[in-house]
Design a protein around this nucleic acid. Structure first.
Lengths: 345, 345
DNA sequence: TTGATTTATTGGAACGTTCCATTTATAGCG
DNA sequence: CGCTATAAATGGAACGTTCCAATAAATCAA
């Protein structure tokens, strides 16, 4: 069955005894062709082992059916889940999403973006790599390609953003810690080249201020957004003269690191030191102790982003409204038992 | 700068006052053009906001520079890491890998494969979805497209495979358990529609036989390859009249589930029941207790698979040798302290 | 100076599809 | 039967590249 050179619609046409135009029509499921002819053509398609050449088709057609998803870190389950959420909606829209990983590397991101454009994608959903320069997306904008940012945003950019309410999430978590009786609070992990960092830290700061924690009683330790980073943060915090008794972590990975480091020092997370995570990845509920975390519904946000993209493509616009997803503090065991009544200040 | 319709090499040619052929040459970095001309052309390219149309180019060129990676479950960090390993080598080869997720769904896989082919990929690395029918890849083979399987294989297929030595890994882990003094062993999780399952179970069985564990003292419980599956496996095993005292789990997720379920019953993993995982995902070392697991170096296998693919493309063949990666049992705390001396049968 | 050689540049055909404008076949109607 | 209306199928141009063969310009040898 396998012919030497790859088959084209002309081969099919010859095989079926019709014209290439007819074959093209069949391929597109046009209702203009007689059913029997269609059957005949479809058989020929099978026989010659034909593979549709989308590149050739796109030469004439307005736009392709592929959209690109550019993810900063696929090994982070948080982003992987978001990607899967997006895939779900694209699939049911007959669109094939191609995923590319930038591994948090702006240079790689540039390459990937370029390649995706050359491939003729209809749109791009991007979770920008840390350290992305503001100009990195200008090219895309100037071409009029629909782009939406997911999870992360860039400092100054007109590109629509789908992201969780980081500010509120941090506020909620911080308030929880304070309500538990803690008076010296820390914010662990993350770095200021991420807009998300400022949002979360902002929520933390505002909650402290609003609920009567003096600024000098809060400590902020930047660090890698990984377990390793969390370990480091805890070390430096506990080395201070007046160490904190609780920490809001930039994300769950940092929180896991903090808990690990606590154990290594013989301290029990929850009882001796309270920790709250952010993102609520699946592992959070399975940890010992189970991690209290701010749930952001990454899959849901992914779906949302995909829907926005679909609408943008459909209405051939490059603008859309931002969407800030609801967050929700899920309280588990990593902040210890409720002390509200016992020790008010 | 942004022109209304998208710019083509003819626009560049006009802008730079040269012919389209010259522009094409510049685009390909040919050494035939005078440096000053090249500079002039490159400036024009910037000015008109040109985006290279790879689809059009591929119409003439032999083959594209994109290869597809089809992954059965991106949310599993094990596969995500493998994907990242592949990416690393493709990147340095100037190839852009597009990742597609099948979510363990053969139908979705079929669509994804089709789409990737239509896109004109130069090759495909696939970790097949569970339940893939043997015929699913015949089309690809007949077109002469290089394909390699990673991590998983199909029952009857001539497609080269890059996978860990599952048999040996299971053997090692089982021997470890037996050496620890366990005499009633279980194999938890996985299902028989996966070739990997048979390999790992085979290793388990052989080790038992070789080391004097009677078949009636081994119990095998199939189940989902997830935490949930692990929980279920443990429940059914402990409900038996003579329950096992140790288990080799199909993968780490199952092992985590088993440990969770043990705790929930007031049993301490390691002390009261030994558990070994498979894959050695990053979480394994951070768990409480740290999980003993068979390390398979997923990133390394990913790199290997990518190299094989590169070579296949280069030598335009569709065949290559299988590669079975070394495995390595990393012993941690989930099998309890060493009892070798104490209680020999 | 002339022809040969090398260096730069160029026009045109080809790649595999879509889509418009036509043509051809079929049916409907008085 | 001739005419129009409808249905089905078709040829050809166009899409944006690459690459070959050809040309034009510059250099060299004699």
């Amino acid at each position: 069955m396998a012919s030497r050179a790859k088959a084209t619609i002309l081969d099919i046409a010859r095989e079926a005894g019709v014209s290439k135009s007819t074959v093209s029509l069949v391929l597109q499921g046009s209702g203009l062709i007689r059913p029997e002819t269609a059957v005949k053509v479809r058989k020929a398609i099978e026989d010659v082992g034909y593979v549709y050449n989308r590149g050739a088709a796109n030469l004439r057609k307005a736009h392709s059916n592929v959209i690109g998803m550019v993810i900063n870190d696929l090994t982070n389950p948080f982003f992987a889940e978001m990607a899967v959420g997006m895939e779900r909606v694209f699939q049911s829209a007959g669109i094939v999403p191609f995923i590319a990983n930038t591994a948090e590397n702006p240079v790689r991101q540039e390459e990937v973006l370029k390649s995706l454009m050359e491939q003729g994608v209809a749109g791009l959903i991007v979770s920008p790599a840390r350290g992305t320069t503001p100009g990195a997306f200008r090219r895309l904008e100037s071409v009029g390609l629909p782009v939406v940012f997911a999870m992360r945003r860039l400092p100054e950019s007109r590109i629509p953003v789908i992201a969780p309410d980081n500010h509120r999430g941090a506020w909620l978590a911080t308030a929880h810690l304070i309500r538990k009786g803690h008076r010296r609070l820390a914010f662990f992990g993350g770095s200021s080249d991420l807009v998300v960092y400022h949002e979360r830290l902002g929520g933390f700061r505002e909650a402290c201020e609003a609920l009567g924690i003096a600024k000098r009683d809060t400590i902020v330790v930047e660090g890698e957004t990984s377990r390793k980073g969390g370990i480091a943060c805890l070390e430096t915090a506990l080395a201070m003269t007046e160490p904190p008794t609780a920490a809001l972590c930039f994300n769950d990975a940092v929180a896991f690191g903090v808990m690990l480091a606590l154990r290594k020092r013989g301290l029990e997370p929850g009882a001796d030191f309270a920790v709250v995570g952010f993102d609520d990845v699946i592992e959070a509920q399975h940890y010992m102790p189970a991690l209290t975390s701010v749930a952001v519904d990454s899959a849901g946000l992914g779906e949302r982003a995909a829907h926005v993209m679909l609408k943008m493509i459909q209405s051939r616009t490059t603008r859309a409204e931002d969407h800030i997803g609801a967050v929700n503090l899920v309280v588990r065991d990593s902040c210890g038992p409720d002390r509200r009544k016992g020790d008010a200040a």
